Amino acid sequence: MKITVCKDYAHLSKVMAQKVAELIRQKPNLVFCLPAGNSPIGMFKELVKMYEEGKVDFSRLRTFDMDEYVGCGPEDPHSFVYFFHHHFFDHVNINMDNVRYPDALADDLDAMCEKYAQDIVDAGGLDIAITGIGDDGHIAFNEPGEYLLPRTHVVKMDEMTRKQNASAFEDRKEGVPRYAITTGMEEHMKAKHYFVVCSGAHKAPLLKRLFESEKLDPQFPVSWLRMHPNVEFVIDEEAAKEIPKDVLAYFSK
C-alpha cells in the first residue's frame, strides 16, 4: 500500500494521468478498468492533453467500464458509456473495438454480467483499475452489506448513493436508477495496479476511518483494499488531513 499526497485536485489529476500514461507506455495493450464520476474528470482531461501533445498512444488500449446504471443505454446522457465518450473516447485514438461495457438494457442482466466477468478473465484480468470512494465507503457500486460479491453483478443501490448522485438526474423523470451493474471485489482485488483517487475535505473522515482500523468490513467496502497487493491512494492535502500522521508517514515512503 502507498499514499501519494498532492497539493490539490489539479495536481492530483496530473499525477494520476502521468501514472496511467507510464503504464500504457510499458504495456500498450493493457486492460484499463475505467472509472466514471467527478473524481477522474481531471485525469481524463490531462490524458487527452498528453495525447494531443504526442506523449501517449491509446490505439492498442483495452477498456472495461467499472460500472453502469441499469436502464441507461449508450446514447443516454446519464450513462457512463456516454460519460467516457464525452470526456475521453471522442478525443483520443482509441480503437472502439477494444472497448467493453455492460449492456444495461439486456433482457437477462445476470447472464450479461456473467459474460462480462468472463470477458475480463479472457482479457487476462485488469491491469489498471481506478476508483473514488463513495460517501458510504462503496467502491464502484459495491455497496455496504452483509457480504460482497466477487464478480460483475447487478446491485440495488444504497439510498445514500442515490442521494449523492441525484444532482446528475434532475432532468430525468424517473430520477436516479434503483439498480446498477458493477464489477465485483474479486475483479478489483486481482487488478495488477489499483488506484484510489480522493479530493476535498469531505473525503477526509472516510480516509481516517480506513486507515485507523485494520478491520475488513463489508459494511465499509473500501476497507477490503487494505488487502490489495498493489494499491496506491492518490489524494490531495484536504483529503489527507485526518489520516494519522504516523500512518501517513509510513505509507508515503
Results as ranks from 00 to 15, higher is better:
Asp127Ser: 09
Tyr116Gln: 00
Ala129Arg: 12
Ile128Asn: 02
His86Gln: 14
His78Ala: 10
Gln118Phe: 09
Glu75Gln: 14
Ile139Leu: 13
Asn93Leu: 13
Asp136Cys: 14
Ser79Asn: 06
Val121Glu: 11
Tyr116Glu: 04
His87Ile: 01
Val121Cys: 05
Asp110Glu: 15
Ala106Ile: 05
Asp119Tyr: 10
Asp119Ala: 15
Ser79His: 09
Ala123Phe: 01
Gln118Pro: 04
His78Met: 06
Asp122Lys: 12
Ser79Glu: 06
Glu114Trp: 03
Val121Phe: 10
Ile128Thr: 11
Asn142Glu: 14
His86Ile: 00
Val81Asp: 00
Asp119Gln: 14
Leu126Cys: 09
Asp122Gly: 00
Asp135Ile: 11
Ile120Lys: 10
Tyr101Lys: 02
Ala117Thr: 09
Ala117Asn: 13
Val92Ser: 01
Asp90Cys: 08
Ala111Gly: 10
Asp136Tyr: 03
Ile120Leu: 14
Pro77Val: 08
Ala104Asp: 08
Ile133Met: 06
Glu75Cys: 00
Asp127Gly: 13
Thr131Cys: 15
Leu109Gly: 05
Asp76Arg: 01
Tyr116Val: 02
His138Asp: 04
Ala140Pro: 09
Asp108Pro: 06
Gly134Met: 01
Ile130Leu: 15
Met112Cys: 09
Asp108Asn: 15
Ala140Phe: 09
His138Phe: 07
Ile128Gln: 08
Asp107Ala: 15
Asp119Arg: 10
Asp122Asn: 15
Gly137His: 05
Ala111Trp: 03
Thr131Asp: 09
Phe80Arg: 03
Ile94Gly: 11
His138Glu: 02
Tyr82Gln: 03
Tyr101Trp: 13
Met96His: 07
Asp119Phe: 12
Ala111Leu: 14
Asn95Pro: 10
Ile139Val: 15
Lys115Ala: 12
Lys115Tyr: 05
Glu114Ser: 09
Val92Asn: 01
Ile130Pro: 08
Gln118Cys: 10
Gly145Pro: 06
Gly132Ser: 11
Phe80Asn: 03
Cys113Gly: 04
